[in-house]
Design a protein around this nucleic acid. Structure first.
Lengths: 139, 139
DNA sequence: CAAAATGGTTAGCTAAGGTAACTATATTCT
DNA sequence: AGAATATAGTTACCTTAGCTAACCATTTTG
């Protein structure tokens, strides 16, 4: 087995246990990891339209509609009309901003534990490899 | 944003484009990436019972039942009764062994392209990081 | 040998998407 | 300017890749 195949093998093997664990942690906040992805995007990079969210997350518009509808329902985000009246800008509510901080703190020990025994440097290398692959695929 | 969060962010962002592309490549063989995962396991490590497959792939027994049923239908694998009469050993058929070779060759350019510009050494480091995380999570 | 454990299946559910077809607003092109 | 085209978002319905609960059939254990 070549190194390339071994890498992709490991990549896929990690996916389910990781996502399951994250969903377990997020249950407390009535969130799934997909919704958490949206909240993190809004936190890290500010308000986005639905289409922008779709492009960033590599998912289709209807999927974003549903994710955002649920987050609005819970009260973590709100939508405001853009200058372009077709557009809806999605932004965190005050409650949303608050909960994101709380969740980030809550997840911290879990993520730290997951990376236990891995050096900072290796994490950075792995991060760059993943980013590079993503760029190559979408090219 | 800390490095840890950045890593997990990249990990998740890569998942959908990657799996979509793989499924696209596998369409030609009437396979999904989940089924391909089973074929690869049988190729790399020989015949396995359903429970062994479930443990290896971190999925539940009923999911394995369905994956294997489909592969039997297509004719890529067959099941033989184990010494323990409850057990079913899943193994590649001749056609299955043949097709795995073909698919591996067919996927090669795609995987190489995905890793273009990444050094062997960095791939190895990234692979080890993923394996380590998986071990930490399941611990 | 009865009770518990293990391997596998069936039935029905869910998360996290996707496509097709539509409305409403904006943009472009003659 | 007005018609054709493009873009943002939604609705309805479909799919992949899982899941749990409940159930057989064997095997192991007390």
């Amino acid at each position: 087995m070549t190194n390339e195949q071994e890498f992709f093998n490991e990549y896929r093997l990690m996916y389910r246990p990781f996502t399951n664990q994250i969903n377990l942690q997020l249950e407390k906040y009535q969130l799934y990891s997909s919704q958490w992805g949206v909240l993190r995007l809004l936190t890290d990079r500010g308000p986005h339209s639905l289409v922008e969210i779709a492009n960033f997350m590599y998912i289709e518009k209807p999927s974003v509609t549903r994710l955002v509808q649920k987050l609005v329902e819970i009260g973590y985000v709100e939508t405001v009309a853009g200058k372009d009246k077709r557009e809806k800008l999605v932004q965190l509510t005050e409650q949303g901003e608050h909960i994101v901080q709380e969740i980030q703190a809550y997840l911290k020990p879990f993520l730290e534990n997951a990376l236990e025994g891995v050096t900072e440097q290796d994490i950075d290398i792995a991060t760059q490899v993943l980013a590079k692959i993503r760029a190559n695929i979408k090219k």
